[in-house]
């Protein structure tokens, strides 16, 4: 087949699969939460309620696409697109198998960090343009939270980069042939995981949209498909962070040969997605200042220390030392 066509096919495939997974996660989350909370969850639409997502989507598409009179119209429309775009673009660098990945960037890790920084704009602009005090408070909290947790996220990743000696995600997976990085990089993994929750602002770090305080935070004024984009964007974010954890710390598509690589990748990814959901089911939400001081006082020193020790070890054990 023409390599260009193959490339486009991969691209479309990844896009479709990821958006479908994210949408499907809405169903998975609702069912899993129900299991953990002694109730049934959606079970009426289609077999086992599987068509619930479809029904929700139809509903959300046909809702009036209302923009508040007092909102800054252009920015208001732009904000939800940013979150979808930045996250979907990051999926381009993830190697799902040795063969399936949209682009093999040699700065894959940096590309991810850059994109997640841009994602913060979505929250800020949504909150700002809504012209609503609850949205604004949510946006202020969200931007502070995302910017500070990005710092530890980046530093915690550097341990992996130092060990693999590359920014290329393909090569990082290849480098894990003898040992998955979550063992030597356990501290880094934990910091990355926590920062990942904060990046996707999921419970317990859903402070920008804390329901009992800020109604719906930065997306209070959104409805219809624009709200849908924030909603799906959140699940895309979970999928992305889970995929990255798998790639960086759990050997990516690696696994015993009785299953194809892509299946291994998806299995590992779903385990982390379920952990995300389980955390939502079990933890309360810290206060905003507690979150910040936890980040700067505990996670930052921890990730720096991790980087320092990793670097020292790599240098010490380097061949020719």
């Amino acid at each position: 087949m023409n390599p260009i066509w193959a490339h486009i096919l991969t691209l479309v495939l990844v896009l479709l699969v990821m958006v479908t997974i994210a949408a499907g996660l809405i169903y998975v989350e609702r069912r899993m939460l129900a299991v953990w909370q002694d109730r049934l969850g959606p079970n009426r639409t289609g077999p086992f309620g599987l068509l619930q997502v479809l029904a929700d989507m139809i509903k959300i598409f046909f809702k009036e696409d209302w923009i508040p009179k007092f909102a800054d119209k252009r920015v208001f429309v732009l904000a939800p697109m940013i979150i979808m775009m930045t996250i979907l673009m990051t999926f381009a660098v993830i190697p799902f198998t040795p063969l399936i990945s949209v682009i093999n960037l040699n700065i894959g890790v940096l590309f991810f960090l850059a994109m997640s920084s841009l994602g913060a704009y979505s929250v800020v602009l949504a909150g700002w343009s809504s012209n609503n005090k609850y949205s604004l408070l949510g946006a202020i909290r969200g931007s502070a939270q995302m910017l500070s947790y990005e710092v530890f996220m980046g530093i915690s990743l550097m341990g992996v980069v130092v060990m693999a000696g590359t920014f290329n995600l393909h090569d990082i997976v290849m480098a894990q042939h003898s040992i998955w990085y979550f063992i030597p990089q356990f501290v880094g993994f934990i910091v990355f995981f926590i920062a990942g929750i904060a990046e996707t602002h999921r419970l317990p770090f859903d402070i920008p949209e804390a329901e009992s305080e800020l109604v719906a935070g930065y997306h209070s004024e959104y409805s219809g498909m624009k709200f849908g984009m924030f909603f799906v964007g959140e699940y895309l974010g979970i999928t992305l962070i889970s995929a990255l954890i798998v790639t960086l710390y759990f050997g990516g598509w690696r696994g015993p040969h009785f299953l194809p690589p892509v299946v291994w990748f998806l299995i590992k990814m779903f385990v982390f997605i379920l952990i995300f959901i389980l955390m939502r089911a079990s933890l309360p939400r810290p206060r905003y200042d507690q979150l910040m001081s936890y980040g700067w006082k505990i996670l930052l020193p921890l990730s720096l220390l991790n980087l320092l020790i990793t670097g020292a070890c790599v240098l010490y054990f380097a061949p020719g030392h």
């Binding site: 939460l33 909370q37 002694d38 009992s212 939502r280 079990s282 309360p284 939400r285």
Partner: peptide
């Protein structure tokens, strides 16, 4: 009360 603090599960169990 737990829900106000962001915990979503207890409210289902206590109502049960």
């Amino acid at each position: 009360f737990a829900q106000d603090l962001g915990m979503m599960t207890p409210v289902f169990l206590t109502f049960y």
